[in-house]
């Protein structure tokens, strides 16, 4: 990592700590913000956050590893989550999944070469009445057909 990048991240973390406080209870909110900005929480970010909150970096890592939406390895710029739970499965989740895999040339859990997309499974998105559902970043899409899902991906910049 470049030194410059490091310092900008350090500044970002510092301002988050200022905003949310250096209490342990601010940890998840800070991690969430970093995750949102960078799509992952690097070793360096973990160390910086640990230092500000006065806890061991391992504790930060252990929290990240617990939550599905936080990760310590880089991912694609856009995170696509396909609901894999029962009601969506009944309404054609498999066709959706296959179409997306074919179109992007990757399997669920992988990231495209150009780092544009990471595709994952989600557990019930709470949209079972309008299944099948998927999310792209923090937006959700419902009553999808394979064509519609692929079209949505094509519209992402």
């Amino acid at each position: 990592m470049f030194v410059e990048e490091k310092t900008s991240l350090a500044v970002e973390i510092e301002s988050l700590v200022k905003k949310y406080g250096n209490d342990r209870s601010a940890l998840l909110t800070i991690l969430h913000e970093i995750q949102k900005q960078h799509r992952y929480i690097s070793d360096y970010a973990q160390q910086e956050i640990a230092r500000h909150l006065n806890i061991h970096p391992v504790e930060v890592y252990s929290v990240i590893s617990f939550y599905a939406f936080l990760n310590s390895e880089p991912k694609g710029r856009n995170i696509v989550r396909i609901c894999r739970t029962v009601s969506c499965e009944m309404k054609g989740k498999e066709a959706l999944e296959k179409a997306i895999e074919r179109e992007l040339g990757i399997r669920i859990g992988e990231t495209t070469k150009d780092k544009k997309f990471t595709v994952e499974y989600a557990n019930c998105l709470g949209l079972c009445d309008v299944a099948p559902a998927m999310s792209i970043n923090d937006r959700v899409y419902t009553r999808l057909t394979p064509e519609k899902a692929v079209q949505l991906l094509n519209e992402v910049k």
């Binding site: 739970t85 029962v86 009601s87 557990n123 019930c124 709470g126 949209l127 079972c128 009445d129």
Partner: peptide, 11 residues
């Protein structure tokens, strides 16, 4: 936290 598969009333 409504996470039970099949529930969406809280949404």
């Amino acid at each position: 936290d409504e996470g039970e598969p099949g529930t969406f009333k809280d949404r």
